[in-house]
Amino acid sequence: MSAVIETKDLYKIYKDQASEVHAVDGVSLCILQGEFTAIVGPSGSGKTTLLNLIGGLDTPTSGSLFIEGEDISRLSPKELIDFRLHNIGFIFQSYNLIPVLTAKENVSFIMDMQGQKRKEADRRSLELLEAVGLGERTDSRPAKLSGGQQQRVAVARALASKPRFILADEPTANLDSKSAENLLDMMEKLNKQEQTTFLFSTHDPRIMAKARRIITLEDGRVVSDIVK
């Protein structure tokens, strides 16, 4: 398996006049193609910061960050946006769907931005919504969907751009346990069937139970890295 994500001595340091906070403190790790990995740790341990760095949403203070061999810490902000569009799928804690678009339009939104043809984008959106179990709700707007259904649309949206990996920041945090179970089963299935790489930041024991690799952070440092 090839490395999809590789970090070397990655630091993110926040400074103010009085102190210096090492949110990510020299993290070196390698995520391989097809992994189903959870980054865990207490609040403030640096999970979300690490995920933001890997996702190109934030820039490291020092260190290198390679996505399939490309050092994205050297990309300009504009190049980073384009890189995210074509390489990374995001699933956010609070779904973050565009409220004025239907489920299908939310999914095809990414493909529209990629410049794909409308017909092809519509076809793939329907396929993806079918795959996440929302084939009947393609024309519903987010407000008409439950939290679990919205997060499924977010998963379909994350997959729409055919990304190299998907970053999911606390994806089950706002879901009831049944919806969370369903969502996780679905993501696990996608991971196994499509070899889609998932990297979670989570507190949720259900994700930890399903993850095949668990990286534990404390004070911005990797304190354990267990492959089940």
């Binding site: 996702g55 949403l57 504009k78 946006i81 384009d82 995210r84 569009l85 074509h86 995001f90 956010f92 973050n96 565009i98 939104f109 990414i110 931005m113 990629q114 949206r157 751009s161």
Partner: peptide, 9 residues
């Protein structure tokens, strides 16, 4: 969110 997803500013 939309910039995170890849929409240029």
């Amino acid at each position: 969110m939309v910039v995170a997803l890849g929409m240029r500013k």
